[in-house]
Computed example of a mutant assay.
Amino acid sequence: MAALVILLIRVSLCIFLLLNGVEAGRQARISGGEEVSIKDVPYMGTLRKLQNESMSAGSGFICVATAIQNRVLITTAFCIYRQTRENIVAVIGNTYIRGLSPTMKVLKIADWRWHGLYKYNEWAYDIALVFTSQDIVPVKGVIEYLPITQGVFRPNTRCIFCSWGADTTAAVLHNAPYIALRRTTSKMECYKRSLAAGVMCTYDLARVVDINRFDLGGPLKCNNTLAGVLLGNTSDEYMLFTDIYMFRKWINAGIYMHFNGIVALRASCFQWHVAVAIAVYLIIS
């Protein structure tokens, strides 16, 4: 009889958890953030300083980056603007910052490029592509690509923000990534908050997890696509992201130029054949 009562209690608890969207062994998903494993965010990686990593795993953490296709990741321009690519590596396929796993891949950087109109420490045009030397080979449930969005999201669209972040009170990185539920705002409201073009905003009534420079580049996933990369926050409720949709043609052109051997543009030179190549690609894409 006692065993039957215990069984009924367990069944009732399981039904309650299922009805409330809670998985066994996991906390309820909350707005402020919940720790997850790499299986929940297999497209997310990190950029790290090689010299620091050689001494202690996780100590070289710079920013978050997102794999969108083979050998291509997206992050913010701020994350790489004053770095040297020979001193940076991309790490994917691993849940813990301070730890190793059989699926973890450490990739050298072949090249990178940020938007030509980006100005350091400004939100506008804060986007960059990172190209790895080795292939980013998908491993089911551990390493995957997150395609960039091809559409505009309506206000109040439900999205998921992902990052590793840090405890700002202790200045120590979280060892595991976390996710937080977000909702998009209108473009007008976002512009009033950011005063920058090409930026999208999200909000939540609950206070967000402390945002700091370690969160930069964190992906915003809406409708199973990459909708934005984190720039920062304007309040406890509102977070700002580079709007991937607004830069989709720049992203496609940058990938095309990299894999076709066209060097990144510099402010001091703009060769005519590069301009023609970009124009042709954007017309036929």
Rank of each mutant, 00 (worst) to 15 (best):
V72K: 11
R85E: 06
A264M: 10
I30Y: 01
I68Y: 11
E122W: 02
V64N: 14
A180P: 02
I80C: 09
L13K: 06
T202H: 04
T234I: 00
L181E: 12
T225A: 11
I109G: 05
S59N: 14
V41F: 08
I38P: 09
I88A: 00
A170G: 01
A128I: 00
V139M: 05
M188Q: 15
G232L: 00
V89Y: 05
L117G: 08
S56N: 11
K140S: 13
L265W: 07
I160V: 15
G45F: 03
I143E: 09
I251Y: 01
L117N: 13
D111C: 02
H174E: 09
E237Y: 03
V5S: 15
A171H: 07
L47P: 15
C222T: 13
V89A: 12
T169E: 07
S186R: 15
I283M: 15
P177T: 12
A277D: 09
A180T: 09
M55S: 15
E23I: 03
N233S: 00
Y256C: 04
L181A: 11
N87I: 06
K249E: 15
L100V: 05
M246L: 04
A170L: 10
A24Q: 07
N52R: 14
I283S: 11
R183W: 10
T103Q: 06
T132N: 01
V274Q: 14
G33Q: 10
V36G: 00
Y191N: 09
C269Y: 01
L129H: 02
H174I: 10
I143S: 11
V130I: 12
D204V: 08
L107P: 00
K49H: 10
S12Y: 09
L195H: 15
K249D: 15
I255S: 03
V274S: 11
V199G: 09
I74G: 06
S59W: 07
D210K: 07
L50K: 13
K140V: 04
L13R: 09
H115C: 02
P138S: 06
L230N: 04
E144T: 10
V64E: 09
W272P: 00
G60L: 04
I160F: 05
L173E: 12
T75V: 12
R26W: 11
A180C: 07
A67P: 12
K140H: 07
V41L: 08
S31D: 05
V89T: 14
I143F: 02
P219K: 10
R248Q: 13
L4C: 11
M246H: 13
F161W: 00
R71W: 02
N223G: 05
M188N: 13
S54P: 06
V276W: 12
F247C: 08
K119G: 08
I109P: 03
L100Q: 12
A128E: 02
I160E: 06
K192Y: 10
F153I: 07
N260R: 13
G60F: 15
T76N: 14
N175I: 01
F78K: 11
F259Y: 01
A3H: 08
V229T: 08
T84R: 15
N70F: 05
S101Q: 04
R154C: 06
K49L: 06
V152F: 10
G254K: 00
K108F: 04
N94H: 06
A275C: 04
D204W: 07
N20E: 00
S285I: 07
N20P: 00
Q83L: 08
A67D: 03
K39S: 11
A176E: 15
F161Y: 02
